[in-house]
């Protein structure tokens, strides 16, 4: 009973929040509803008893959306609406609609066909974290390692891109605000 109510609360709020993310023209609204929607999705994991995955969803997406905020802060005036450019709204509508329909079909086909099988059932007495760890280091070891290498490559690339003048601190270097000539000009103007 409680689960039933909780599921519908989480489901409805997730849908509403993500629609705000898509439809709103304000960066701040979009980002905030995105973050809140991610938190709501973690609620589903808790309802299904997958505490570990729920918490991971929470931590990972809270951090990821925080980084998105940093970009929004740099690119937009967050208190004003963004003017979007629509070149061909019909094409966008068509492609987006088709994508949505395809995804719904992909995910609902096994449910309609009723051939969903539980390949690795939950063993009693084993916590969530242990179960995830076991699967990760036996069955999915190679994808796990490949993902680790990809992250490493991305990190090295990021450091190389940002690494120019990394040995100097930006806040402690004193930049000359005005050069000598313009300073003289300002002084001349003032003396007049």
């Amino acid at each position: 009973m409680y689960e039933f109510i909780a599921f519908y609360i989480f489901a409805i709020s997730t849908v509403i929040l993500f629609s705000i993310t898509v439809f709103s023209k304000n960066v701040l609204y979009s980002m905030t509803s995105l973050a809140a929607g991610m938190v709501m999705i973690s609620g589903f994991f808790f309802l299904l008893g997958a505490d570990f995955l729920g918490v991971v969803q929470l931590i990972v997406y809270v951090g990821a959306v925080m980084a998105l905020y940093a970009f929004a802060m740099m690119f937009f005036d967050t208190t004003k609406d963004v003017k979007e450019k629509y070149n061909s709204p019909r094409l966008v509508f068509l492609l987006g609609g088709l994508m949505a329909v395809v995804f719904v079909i992909i995910f609902s086909a096994p449910i309609i066909g009723e051939n969903l099988q539980v390949l690795s059932p939950i063993t009693d007495g084993v916590g969530n974290a242990q179960a995830v760890g076991k699967v990760l280091f036996t069955k999915y070891l190679i994808p796990f390692e490949v993902a680790a290498i990809m992250l490493l490559v991305a990190m090295v690339a990021g450091i190389i891109l940002a690494g120019k003048k990394m040995d100097k601190s930006l806040t402690t270097t004193v930049l000359p605000l005005v050069d000598k000539e313009s300073e003289d000009e300002i002084l001349k103007k003032e003396s007049r």
Binding site: L28, T32, A35, V39, F46, D51, F52, V55, V56, L58, I59, V62, G63, M66, Y69, G127, N128, A129
Partner: peptide
Amino acid sequence: VNVGILFVLGMMAAGLYGPLL
């Protein structure tokens, strides 16, 4: 919650959305 530590840390991390927003 049987992943209590992670949950508490995650929630406190989410708390920083307050100052940010």
